[in-house]
Amino acid sequence: MTPDANLLTSLYHLVAKGRVLESLLGKLPGFHPGVGEEGVVVGAFFGLKDSDYIAPHYRGALLAAHMRGADLRRLIAGVLGKVTSYSRGRVRGDICLPLQFNTLGMFSGVLGNPLNISTGIALAASLDGKQGVVVTSFGEGTSNLGAFHESLNLAACLALPIVYICQNNGYAMSTRTDYALKCASVADRAQGYGMPGIRVEGNDVVAMHQAVQSAVARARAGEGPTLIDAVTYRISGHYSADPNDYQPKDERASWLKKDPLLLLKARLQAQGVMTEAQLNEIEKAAEAEITQAIAEAQADPDPGLEVLGPDDLYSPVLERVA
């Protein structure tokens, strides 16, 4: 299926924005940037219904939340712990996302928990019977946790409407995928749970989007979960201060040629959808928007001590009964 110009343009806007976001946030201390992985993020979460849920991998999480409608400045304020963030500074905004956008993040630093929890959201969607779907993503390193294996098996047993996407960037910190996983593809693991497993070029955002959309259609139709191995590459270090000097030079060079932004630009030009000048203009606009959002978030105030909320530990118990 050849994608139409509108789809390509929309995808390009998002990938370009994602690139600027990841590059600029990657300069903040302790941030885990996803430069080079924007194709997976955009392809995974574009084209869903507002009522669907997503639970994105922590790397690229802000882009995903923004795609769901969350405000960039407030998201970035969350990274900085500012009072203008969605949690008023209570939670790590680099990995935890505002659930009011049907977007689940990490309320702790424990990888794998979102896999279990998003499976439960899919269970609720299945019980609701309104064709709601959950799309969740995680790293290939995270797919070595029990949470991955138990969730996939449970989802398969109950035919839950969920799409599991492995944002497979070749590394978990410094650990290479070929050291920590002995199957050829994370997709091979699907067979063990009796669900389809598909390997996709994650840097081809169009292929990525199409693969996810057919898995979503399958889930919506009540046919159960799918596992997608979205193969990409971690151009960034594990976090801002990681020198990332353990990636072999030629491996890195070959992946830089398959940069998702470059691939998409080439495609848009080849299909005559946009000229180079138009493409650059969109990038410039994204840069201006995000630079401004960061500057505003940085100027936002820190939370005052009234946000501490020592008595704010439980939701009022009986509120929902009345």
Binding site: G81, S87, D302, P303, G304, L305, V307, L308, P310
Partner: peptide, 9 residues
């Protein structure tokens, strides 16, 4: 409570 994130908190 759970540990708040922002440095002043």
């Amino acid at each position: 409570t759970p540990r708040p994130f922002a440095m002043p908190l």
